[in-house]
């Protein structure tokens, strides 16, 4: 704890700021991967090594690769960077940013209020997590499986290319 946490937190905040200010979407996604990795370090420091591994494997691995391949499939990148720059004029982003920062200041103030004795960081073993996951929360695990199934079916249904129907007189003769 201490220095390691503050370094990881600073990296996370800086890379997230870089994510929300980039115009090129590939640069933003690569910075977001750095942000996820530093959050994984924070998880490890808070006594959740298994969750740190899951964060790297699923978030930084699977989900980000999915988004990056999607962007490459649409072949965006430098083409949309120009219009993204024209959309991000200061008049657009100053108002919401100030309002959100006011909310953040209020939240930090409320967290910093003196409370009970501060607990130390306790390591929660993956074994306890597994016992809890497949004991009292077995119904929620099954519901998560059904959610993933619905996600797969929905993604297949939405992502399918519709066959274009052209009248046979309008079709060009195949050579």
């Amino acid at each position: 704890m201490g220095t390691a946490f503050y370094i990881a937190a600073a990296v996370a905040i800086l890379s997230t700021i870089m994510v929300i200010t980039r115009y090129n979407i590939m640069h933003a996604l690569l910075y977001f991967i750095v942000s996820l990795l530093s959050v994984a370090v924070v998880f490890y420091l808070y006594g959740a090594p298994f969750m740190a591994a899951l964060e790297v494997i699923i978030y930084a691995g699977a989900i980000m690769v999915l988004i990056i391949f999607f962007v490459m499939m649409l072949s965006l990148g430098s083409q949309t960077a120009g219009e993204e720059r024209s959309w991000m004029t200061p008049g657009v982003w100053i108002g919401p940013s100030i309002l959100c920062l006011v909310l953040l200041g209020e939240l930090v103030f409320l967290i910093l209020q003196p409370a009970g004795p501060a607990g130390e960081v306790r390591v929660v073993e993956p074994k306890e997590v597994g016992l809890s996951l497949f004991g009292p929360y077995i119904l929620a695990v099954e519901l998560a499986g059904m959610l993933l199934m619905a996600g797969i079916v929905g993604a297949y249904h939405l992502g399918r290319q519709k066959k274009k129907i052209v009248h046979r007189f309008l079709q060009t003769p195949e050579s």
Binding site: L66, L148, G151, I152, A155, H157, L158, G159
Partner: peptide
Amino acid sequence: AEVSVGLA
């Protein structure tokens, strides 16, 4: 699940 449906 949200990312897959959102990307579709």
